[in-house]
Design a protein around this nucleic acid. Structure first.
Lengths: 200, 200, 200, 200
DNA sequence: TATGAATGAGTATTCATTCAT
DNA sequence: TATGAATGAATACTCATTCAT
């Protein structure tokens, strides 16, 4: 299993179901996926899914929350011990792209999830997604305090812009049939643009 | 009617239906919207919708294509007569945010549409959306030729990042219940970041 | 136009519509044919059909009634001047098969029509169809009076059996992809069977 | 339940659905019957029907196939031990009429099915229906071999005529409001006509 | 816990019919 | 007479969810 699989052990049904759901949702989209599809891939009965999740929506939300948690853990690991905010920002953006590359199906589901309904977005405003965005924000603020980033840029505003830039780029790259360039070069380009744009 | 309404005249059924669809799709999401909902708002019979559109999907695609065309026309108008690539970029980003502000429902639908299914994205890769992205790209290229933008940045890669940044910011702003800051300040911030990031 | 076309003159809309309906009903079946299909083939507007026929069902019934009338006229012409009931019967059966051969589409529609709904069958018990069946019956009765046909056979019962035999045979032949034998030989065989079966 | 019911046990859902479909199709015709009607009579939910049958058409086809199988079994039982081809033919025709009499609804559905669409007829040309027709054919051939039936009649042609005669007669009798004569007398008449017609 | 058969609400689409022109 | 745009009722089928085992 890849490192972002939720399936820790063989008999971890929760994990098996989530993994199946990610795969199915990514391939067919949320509305075109059926519980029956997911049950088949997870190798459980349809009814079993309802022992672990409240309903189909809950499945989607659970994927989102588990993912964000892991995203954040990975980010903390990646940035640990670093001092330079520029370096931190560069590493963080590159990490995001690396995660997408390693988990294309998960990445797709998160895209679907995050945008598909404003209802969902609104409900989760204060949740794990904010935590993730706040990693960007705190790097920016640290840089401003240390005097390496301009103080006239608002981290509350730009954290979202930076997330959007890297996420959109990742999606574009994912959906590209013939990869015209590497995600590494994307990371460099966006890192370069953002850091230069923010530097004093 | 606002300036992006498709409804030119009272008896333009196509326009009435598209406007209704935008409103309904924005509020409920594509899959939770029914043809009956749309018909009611458009004040036509359900069957009438099928005289103007092949099916529900066609309705979504039509919204997308009409919108992109208008986006591009607006952009051309906005940039007309300008020489400075930096100024062009600033104006373009501000225009995007202004359009979103004036047509929040349309903006939401486009978000749904653009992301919701990779199938859609792939099918429309070469279409109107590319045209829109290419406005960004050509501004960047012009700046590079004129020596005001760095030549080590790849316009093919970054056009998507810039679109993502501004679009995500717009969505965030749209979904914010209490507007903590204005879209104008967003425009300034993102414009500033991007232009400084790209400048030699 | 073939000799059973209802279209006597160019501007006879009734005829054009009936001919179109026969063709379409034969190809698609009554329920899968649309008024729009028929209008297109008849080269009239959909609404026009409703100036000549009460509704779709009426179209079917009209085809049936017109056809039966012609069947009967043809039969009278064919049998005119003949004396021998055996000869009459033989000729009548052969005529039926000839008509089917010349008007395969009409024949198919009549098959559909006659069987498809008991409602229709019941409603038309006393109509033109009886007239047609009565041609068989009167030949039989004439033969019985003249002493050439057995008197212990009931014409009321067997008229329907004879109709069924010849009609089923015709349908079978029509639907046969590769014609294994001619309709003429069918006529001979069934004529022979029936006449010998009835003769004293 | 009558002896041709498909409903072997109370909990045999397949049988309950088929029986319900036969009843509804017979009364309203295939196209005017709704799944909801059938579900109500079968006392199952609409969705349940789709657990047992692919779709509405499949229901019709299933009725046809089950029926033909039983028809043939009954015929074999009826003819078992008989030697005289004339007797066999007589018995077979009488059996057909008896079956119709006992299963009037099934008989009607088969009529609809068999004629309603040439598409259906063509698709099933080689199927169970042929098997049924071949019972007639083999009786005729046996008679010809044994020298009791004329050799100048073609069994391939006449099997269909005989089926048509008896089936049409049965339908007529079924649809007659006031039974003017018994089906037994029909059986005698048609048996007599056919056998005398075929005898050397 | 686990199953999967049964449920039945929910909806896109078609098409006969009408009617203003 | 003739048109054809508009109507809206009608229905097969899907699938999330439940519950008896």
């Amino acid at each position: 299993m890849n490192e972002y699989s939720f399936m820790a052990e063989k008999n971890n049904k929760t994990g098996r179901i989530l993994d199946a759901a990610i795969r199915i949702f990514a391939r067919k989209g949320f509305y075109n996926s059926t519980i029956s599809d997911i049950a088949k891939v997870a190798e459980v009965a349809e009814g079993t899914i309802y022992l672990y999740f409240k309903n189909k929506d809950d499945l989607l939300i659970s994927i989102f929350e588990h993912s964000m948690e892991m995203f954040i853990q990975e980010a903390e690991k990646e940035l640990e011990g670093l001092e330079d905010p520029k370096e931190k920002m560069k590493r963080f953006l590159a990490l995001h792209l690396r995660i997408v590359q390693k988990n294309p199906e998960l990445a797709q589901v998160l895209q679907i999830e995050l945008r598909q309904s404003s209802k969902f977005m609104k409900e989760y405003e204060g949740g794990k997604f904010s935590d993730y965005l706040n990693v960007v924000r705190s790097i920016m603020e640290e840089g401003q305090e240390k005097g390496v980033f301009r103080k006239d840029l608002d981290p509350r505003i730009l954290r979202r812009a930076i997330f959007g830039a890297v996420d959109e780029m990742a999606l574009d790259w994912l959906l590209m049939k013939k990869k015209k360039y590497s995600l590494e070069s994307c990371a460099e380009q966006i890192g370069d643009l953002v850091i230069r744009g923010m530097s004093v």
